[in-house]
Design a protein around this nucleic acid. Structure first.
Length: 421
RNA sequence: GGAGAGGUGUCCGAGUGGUUGAAGGAGCUCGCCUCGAAAGCGAGUGGGCCCAUCGGGUCCCGGGGGUUCGAAUCCCCCCCUCUCCGCCA
């Protein structure tokens, strides 16, 4: 979220951003209200200055035993006027705030302008398998007895899945593997709440826009997190970092809960789109000068998961129209799933610049001694179900087993292949 | 869930209606002193917003309302922390 001064000074850019991101923010209304707000503010502050001055005087004169009833009466009247103006001010500030919440972050100049079709493949890694007759993950999973779609659907509905036996162990292995990998790369492992208040979600930009996409606990101001980004980015709310303490690199595993409202009928079967899925998430809190450099590192760190597991992928630079509300620049990592013959998004690595920092109030004290907003970044490192899909499909073997990539074996009791139990 | 205590600046801590944005101490910065350091001495040391050239004004003592000429101080609601009881994986 932007502050009003910024909006005043960068109205043109913001208008362009709203258009490019296909958001619906009324900048003209904000600017008009802002004019009125400032006029009102100047007036009411003048009156308050008078009240403060006179009230002090009343105190002094009263102590001296003078009759102050005339002044008190005058101030009572002034108080009424102030109250009126304050009410007007509060109303208009409420309107401005409401509208301001819907102003998206401005895309970075390096972001291609356009819709999805303008997304750019910036690099690709690995060699996709192209043989005929490769099975898809559902077929593989069923043959191995590691997936449990029906039981989960029966107790929880579509969009929920279970894993059994080796499948469950595979998920746990992947989580542990990724946490360890990122730990070595310098990320601090965190354990976070899986439900947060609305303020935390607002801070990351999930609210107000995505309210319908989240699960809310009945009767409480608590939402199941759609991503560990929320508790991680909010974790150090209120602390003021020293410049030399940055960057702060955090990693956490969490389940993620998404209603996926409106997504029905679209890729709803299997592991591709779920109401609950597991994810390892990376968050960086950095100084502004370094945030774009850190975005490249963050992306590279997420890629390292895929490379070390030997899975072919490509990196997309998202176009403005595909960029999320709070993001200034974002790379998507897509794994190739040869049995399904499609690319699967397993990670989005974003720089939010100071958009979230302003909402949450994340600041650092610079070498100049002053407070500045940090920049925040996050990226999946990576999402589990789709990683599992790509892994099963990529490492399937003619005998029906699935080869386990070397680095993962220590996490699976040393076995070299998944086979039916 | 019940009862009580409390939330003040970077930190500790005073302050229960009036020149308190906030005593005192610690820390930090600068200066003096010193060969240098420590100690000592002196000065400085919050943030947001509005107007403005220096500067001025306003708001902020967990958050939000209210009472009052005037609130960190009184009232209401909420959040958090601590202690005791209850319950519990």
């Amino acid at each position: 979220m932007y502050d009003l001064k910024f909006v005043r000074e960068h109205a043109g850019e913001l208008r362009r951003a709203v258009e490019q991101k296909r958001e619906h923010a009324d900048l003209d209304a904000i600017l008009a209200d802002e004019e009125r707000r400032r006029a009102l503010l100047a007036e009411v502050e003048k009156l308050k200055a008078e009240r403060n001055r006179t009230s002090q005087e009343i105190g002094r004169r009263k102590a001296a035993g003078e009759d102050v009833s005339a002044s008190v009466a005058a101030m009572r009247e002034l108080g009424e006027r102030i109250r009126e103006l304050d009410d007007q001010l509060r109303t208009i500030e409420g309107e401005i705030h409401e509208r301001l919440q819907w102003v998206p972050n401005i895309p970075h100049p390096s972001v291609p302008v356009g819709d999805e079709s303008a997304n750019a493949v910036v690099r690709a890694w690995g060699t996709p398998r192209e043989e005929e007759g490769l099975r898809n993950h559902l077929e593989i999973g069923e043959a191995l007895g590691i997936l449990a779609l029906t039981p989960a659907a029966q107790m929880s509905g579509s969009g929920f899945i279970g894993f059994t036996g080796l499948g469950a162990r595979l998920e746990r292995a992947l989580i542990n593997y990724m946490l360890d990998l990122h730990g070595v790369a310098g990320y601090r492992e965190m354990r976070v709440p899986y439900a947060t208040r609305s303020a935390a979600l607002f801070g990351c930009g999930q609210l107000p826009k995505l309210a319908e996409d989240m699960y809310r606990l009945e009767g409480e101001d608590l939402f199941l997190i759609p991503t560990a980004e929320v508790p991680l980015t909010n974790f150090y709310r209120g602390v003021i970092w020293n410049e030399e303490e940055l960057p702060v690199n955090l990693v956490a595993y969490s389940p993620c809960f998404r209603r996926e409202a409106g997504a029905h009928g679209k890729q709803t079967h299997g592991l591709i789109r779920l109401h609950q899925f597991d994810k390892v998430e990376l968050v960086k809190i950095v100084t502004p000068e370094r945030s774009y450099e850190e975005l490249e590192r963050l992306t590279a760190d997420a890629e390292q998961v895929l490379q070390s597991l030997g899975l072919p992928y490509r990196v997309l630079l998202l176009a403005s129209g595909d960029l999320s509300f709070a993001s200034a620049k974002c790379y998507d990592l897509e794994l190739w799933a040869p049995g399904s013959a499609r690319w699967l998004e397993v990670s989005s690595c974003s720089n939010f610049e100071d958009f979230q920092a302003r909402r949450i109030g994340l600041r650092y004290r610079g070498s100049d001694g002053k407070l500045h907003l940090v920049h925040t970044l996050n990226g999946s490192g990576v999402a589990l179900p789709r990683l599992t899909v790509a892994l099963l499909e990529h490492y399937q073997q003619a005998d029906g087993t699935v080869r386990v990539p070397e680095p993962l074996r220590p996490y699976l009791g040393g076995i070299a292949a998944l086979r039916a139990e």
